[in-house]
Design a protein around this nucleic acid. Structure first.
Length: 224
DNA sequence: ACCCAGGGTCATA
DNA sequence: TATGACCATGGG
């Protein structure tokens, strides 16, 4: 039987193991937004190359991205994969962003409404919206990704069939809507997954084909 | 040569 | 509601 607030134990365990992560790796809020779209189902190392190309071409701003021919934008972000789709998504997002006014304008919108607005943009789904809300606007939301589902399921914090919203609210409540904690928690989960991945299909609980040995130790230590 | 990465949309049942 | 196809580069 799972106890209430086990998420906090996992959080402190991860924090003890790895320390603060200081996410998101970006210089500006807008760079966070671009990175959130480009990293959809894509390794971050590839996103870095795409962002480098944008910066090199003075195109790391909403004006340049929305004004550029889509084919040219696609060529710049090619290393991040899905470049045709992501070029469309980036431009859709930048049209919306410029139409809203500015960062300051958006920062005055309530979190719930800003989330709805983001989700109305073509190519922005729940996870991308929450990345932007948490890491570009410092809003108290939690990001649910494949790593989180896998770890939570393995650690007994989730059944694996919860909807995105249910899981998100569950963590937000436990963490008492603390922006800094929600920020670190998601960052730690991602780091943990990358750091500990050993690509051996051993774990019975793992829904993917690879397995996280260190996670098993960590889970066993606290939850097993 | 295969697996999969810090997902989302769209069509189908 | 819930699957499946599709998008595409690059590292392990």
């Amino acid at each position: 039987m799972m106890q209430a607030g086990q998420e906090r134990k996992l959080f402190s365990l991860l924090m003890k193991a790895y320390g603060k992560q200081d996410w998101w790796p970006a210089d500006t809020p807008f760079e966070v937004m671009v990175g959130a779209i480009l990293t959809q189902n894509t390794a971050w190392s590839n996103v870095v190359k795409a962002i480098f190309n944008l910066r090199k071409n003075n195109a790391l701003n909403p004006q340049a991205i929305s004004a550029m021919p889509q084919a040219q934008l696609a060529d710049m972000i090619k290393p991040s994969g899905y470049f045709n789709i992501k070029a469309k998504r980036l431009q859709s997002f930048c049209y919306w962003y410029l139409q809203q006014g500015s960062y300051d304008t958006l920062s005055k919108i309530s979190t719930d409404n800003l989330r709805k607005d983001l989700l109305s943009v073509h190519g922005i789904g729940p996870e991308t919206a929450d990345d932007i809300l948490l890491y570009a606007f410092d809003r108290p939301v939690f990001v649910i990704d494949a790593y989180t589902r896998r770890l939570f399921t393995r650690a007994g914090l989730a059944s694996g069939h919860e909807s995105y919203e249910v899981l998100r609210h569950q963590v937000e409540q436990v963490m008492q809507d603390s922006v800094v904690d929600l920020n670190e928690f998601h960052a730690l989960i991602v780091w943990h997954a990358k750091e500990s991945c050993r690509k051996k299909p051993i774990c019975m609980h793992c829904t993917l084909q690879h397995h996280c040995n260190y996670a098993q130790q960590l889970d066993g230590y606290e939850f097993g």
